[in-house]
């Protein structure tokens, strides 16, 4: 949106209800467009400018801080029911610049740019000296833990074979020596008990995603795995909203920028259904 130097702008209070309304519309936009990682929630509005635009519209220019929640973006749980990731869990924040057009009382996003970053190790240590920090997602222990956990989950499942979508979070725990991982999965057209060659399995046309948490504990002469997956209701084949223009919402997982990303074609732009099923 061109914002000419001669146009007038207002600088309302950052906690003004209308400013907050714009910020919440921006957060909704993030959570419905981000393809990886976790939903974010509004933490603070840093700056706001309101440009008067002719005819009949205003452009809100916002800088906002967000915080990662524990809800994966594929989880249909409403944001209001998602818990903010606490400092002791190694919190992650997002910094976003937005421009939103307000017309007829409705906000629409015309520009967005977000970056996410984990809290510093020093800050985590201040509140919890022994808490594990986020680990790189391509760490060999992390990759191994996810592999073992997903294999264990499929071995116990009587339904579809689930394949990995993304590793979204990992921590290496020193005592007892263990690896904690969180990852997203998707159902395929193979049966879990009959999938001899997972490479031949295809994602279902009606996508069904799940989210898993697992701990792999090292033991003398072996290892133990504990995995819990929540499988969400299948997603309908409704057309998904697509990002338009030069938007760049990128609140990706934080620890490892080189970890393999899932094909965006396999992921929805928005979660459309409710009601998790725990397996």
């Amino acid at each position: 949106v061109p914002v000419g130097p001669t146009l007038a702008y207002d600088e309302p209070n950052c906690d003004d209800p209308e400013t907050e309304q714009a910020a919440l519309a921006a957060v909704d936009y993030i959570n419905s467009h981000v393809l990886r990682g976790y939903k974010h929630t509004l933490n603070q509005i840093d700056k706001v400018k309101v440009w008067l635009q002719q005819p009949g519209g205003q452009v809100f220019e916002l800088e906002i801080d967000t915080l990662e929640t524990t809800c994966h973006v594929l989880d249909p749980t409403p944001l209001a029911n998602c818990t903010v990731r606490q400092l002791v869990e190694h919190a992650v924040e997002g910094d976003c610049d937005f421009r939103l057009l307000k017309q007829d009382g409705q906000f629409s996003v015309v520009f967005s740019k977000c970056d996410s970053s984990p809290d510093s190790a020093e800050d985590v240590r201040k509140v919890c000296p022994d808490c594990p920090l986020l680990a790189p997602l391509n760490d060999t222990k992390v990759v191994h833990a996810v592999d073992v956990a997903l294999t264990a989950f499929n071995a116990q499942s009587n339904g579809s074979y689930f394949q990995l979508v993304e590793v979204s979070r990992a921590q290496l725990v020193p005592l007892p020596p263990s690896t904690y991982v969180e990852f997203a999965v998707a159902a395929t057209d193979c049966a879990a008990q009959e999938a001899t060659d997972p490479a031949q399995c295809n994602l279902l046309a009606e996508k069904q995603y799940g989210f898993c948490k697992a701990t792999l504990t090292e033991k003398v002469g072996g290892e133990d795995v504990a995995v819990t997956c929540t499988v969400f209701q299948p997603q309908s084949l409704l057309p998904q909203p697509q990002p338009d223009g030069p938007d760049a919402v990128a609140l990706a997982p934080v620890a490892d920028p080189v970890a393999p990303a899932p094909s965006p074609a396999d992921l929805p732009a928005a979660a459309l259904v409710v009601g998790p099923m725990v397996v």
């Binding site: 600088e11 906690d15 933490n43 603070q44 801080d65």
Partner: peptide, 27 residues
């Protein structure tokens, strides 16, 4: 005729309109 004297505003607390409130904690 009673004239209300003008009220001269003294130096009050400075209101910082931005940034806004922190909803959870600062990272």
């Amino acid at each position: 005729k009673v004239v209300q004297p003008g009220i001269v505003a003294g130096p009050g607390p400075v209101v910082r309109p931005c940034p806004g409130r922190i909803r959870y904690f600062k990272v």
